[in-house]
Amino acid sequence: MSIALVGIGKIARDQHLPAIADSDRFALAATVSGSGGIDGVENHADIAALLHARPDIPAVSLCMPPVPRFVAARAAIAAGRHVMLEKPPGASVTEVFRLERLARAAGVSLFATWHSRMAAGVAPARAWLAGKRITRLRIDWKEDVRKWHPGQDWIWQPGGLGVFDPGINALSILTELCPGALHVAEAELTFPANRDTPIAARLTFTDGAGLDATADFDWRQEGGEIWQIEIETDIGALKLTEGGARLFIDGAEQPTAGCGEYPALYRHFATLLAEGRPDVDTAPQLHVADAFLLGRRVTGAPFHD
């Protein structure tokens, strides 16, 4: 199936393009980029031009920053195209709900992706947790923003999410492992004095029954990334590291298998198209929204890229 990639930035080049190139279900037919596309691939200046010129392309994958994504997704849905959304699926929860309703009414598939859920250790971790009582949960998600988002001003602007851009990856795993079990009870958000989104966040979750559950997100990490989730239960402990790629049960590493996060996303998108259904889960984004609603704001040192 032909697919168009909209927004040719770092995530598109690092993840989407290789995944599509290796896919046996999709072929890249066109791109949309105002700053230049991909050598040998037809490029359009905006999504309106693409939709007009290429009615034969049934699916689009939107990789631009979250704030402009709603307009592009709405236009694609109105043109009868299936839509895949890079995470987070929108700049607000409300607009994602609107897109889902529009997609259902138009009879097209809408896929709100959460790539970290496709990490090799996540599915076996969920299977191991089934039937166990969680007693403690700890998330540490820390990285160097200068390494992973160099010169990307949009992340510091309203709607850019700041440290929640990577932090929502952890929350996507959390809501996969513990669907509907927790909500944010307290939050502390550290904003650089010269920025509009947080550089660090500390969250406390509750299950209403005294569970000890916290998350610590930080973009000021030096000396290597920390992307891990630790869960203690009534009959053992689980640890996911490297963003969910590695799984440990009671200290012993478990065998895992997978095709890679983004190849798995495109496989799932193909399945959705074949079955004619959407997949739109806003649970990770709801945690972020609650953190902003409940969060105590702390002003930190100015950040300069």
Rank of each mutant, 00 (worst) to 15 (best):
I3Y: 05
I3L: 08
V6I: 10
V6T: 00
I8C: 01
I11N: 02
P18S: 03
R25W: 11
A27Q: 06
L28E: 02
A29F: 12
T31Y: 07
G37D: 09
N43K: 03
I47L: 04
I47Q: 00
L51F: 13
A53E: 11
P55R: 05
I57S: 04
M64E: 11
M64K: 10
F70P: 01
A72E: 10
A76N: 01
K87I: 03
A91N: 05
A91R: 07
V93M: 05
F97I: 05
A120K: 04
A120M: 06
G121W: 08
P124L: 00
A125K: 03
A125M: 03
A125H: 04
A125G: 04
R133I: 10
T135S: 11
R138L: 11
D140S: 01
W141Y: 08
K142Y: 09
V145H: 10
W148C: 01
W156H: 03
V163W: 11
F164K: 01
S172W: 14
I173T: 14
L174N: 04
C178K: 07
C178T: 15
V184T: 00
E186L: 06
E188V: 09
E188Y: 10
R202V: 02
L203Q: 07
T204P: 07
F205K: 03
D207S: 08
D207L: 06
G208S: 05
A209W: 14
F217M: 03
I226R: 13
I226W: 15
E230A: 15
I231P: 14
G244A: 13
P255Q: 01
C259I: 15
G260R: 13
Y262M: 03
L265F: 14
A274W: 14
A274V: 11
R277N: 13
V280H: 09
A283L: 06
L286F: 12
F292G: 06
L293R: 15
G295P: 03
R297M: 06
G300R: 06
P302N: 08
